[in-house]
């Protein structure tokens, strides 16, 4: 199918872009990589009257070291740039491990970090990774700018803290603490399809080898990235034994997610996958933490 007619605006600066968003409000949609928005428009599920194309806003495309040891990523940075970034590989190994799971190479050549998190598909990788990393998102409008923690940015199915006149300009991802291991894994029916379930883990061990902190974030099993409360409750202060990790994974999959069933998999199967994947990523994260 073909998209309906719309007014096309192609700003070259953030100031110009947010001025357009302020002018057109709810009628306008920012167009980032277009890998979700354009198919939605082709199906006419979305019919924005105005598209503000951000692809000529050069100032939004960068990957920079942050002073805290983390990384700052411009909203229009494409997945392929993150995938090939040495800085990301060094400082954000969890993100580095995850990016190849995003869709297919052609999609990663166009899709952007800011676009993915603004779209807020609960089955997408970057929202979950941004939450797992305790990232922060910088939003801009003509009214000014504000930082929103990732945990508060994702409000529900395709719903974020963005106001109609705001856009994401930057994502700040802090480095993982010392003695922290990480892992990401997902299960999809075919490589590159939206995963049935995905899980990101970051585990920090104390000098004595006990668990100091655990981040376990699920995707595809709720209306947003789902952060486990059970995993830290089970593990913090404990030796990361196989039994403890198993219990954490089982309880997280029982208590912290809200999977749905569809033609691809039942809710019960998704819950089962979530427990298996959670155990797998927790185990790998602990091994990596011990090796650091």
């Amino acid at each position: 199918m073909k998209p309906p007619a719309f007014k096309y605006l192609a700003p070259t600066t953030v100031d110009e872009a947010v001025a357009y968003l302020a002018e057109y409000g709810y009628d306008a949609k920012p167009l980032a990589g277009g890998q979700s928005l354009i198919p939605t428009m082709n199906f006419r599920l979305a019919q924005p009257a105005v598209l503000v194309d951000l692809n000529r806003v050069q100032e939004l495309s960068y990957i920079r070291p942050a002073e805290d040891g983390g990384v700052l990523i411009g909203a229009m940075t494409r997945h392929v740039q993150v995938e090939r970034s040495d800085l990301v590989a060094q400082r954000l190994p969890l993100l580095h491990e995850t990016v190849p799971f995003i869709a297919h190479p052609q999609i990663r050549n166009r899709g952007t970090y800011g676009g993915s998190i603004s779209h807020a598909d609960p089955a997408a990788e970057l929202p979950a990774i941004t939450v797992a990393h305790r990232g922060r998102v910088q939003l801009r409008s003509t009214r000014g700018s504000r930082w929103v923690p990732a945990e508060e940015f994702f409000l529900g199915l395709f719903t974020t803290a963005l106001e109609p006149d705001e856009m994401v300009v930057e994502i700040a991802l802090p480095a993982l603490p010392p003695r922290t291991g990480w892992a990401f894994d997902e299960f999809s029916r075919r490589h590159g399809d939206f995963a049935l379930v995905g899980v990101a883990a970051a585990v920090t061990l104390s000098a004595q080898g006990r668990v100091d902190e655990v981040r376990l974030v699920f995707m595809g099993v709720g209306d947003r990235p789902m952060t486990s409360a059970a995993a830290p409750a089970v593990l913090v202060g404990q030796e990361p034994s196989d039994e403890a990790l198993e219990e954490a994974a089982q309880r997280a999959a029982q208590e912290d997610i809200d999977p749905f069933g569809d033609v691809h998999a039942s809710a019960a199967f998704r819950r089962h996958l979530a427990s298996v994947l959670a155990k797998r990523v927790l185990t790998r994260a602990v091994e990596r933490a011990q090796a650091r």
């Binding site: 096309y8 890998q35 354009i38 198919p39 199906f43 194309d53 052609q106 050549n109 166009r110």
Partner: peptide, 24 residues
């Protein structure tokens, strides 16, 4: 498919493969 699934419309855009049905 015209929604970015099949890849039949792939072209090189500035040297990189992209789906031409997902660009204006």
């Amino acid at each position: 498919c015209e929604h970015g699934v099949c890849g039949a419309c792939t072209v090189l855009f500035d040297g990189e493969p992209v789906r031409s049905c997902l660009m204006f």
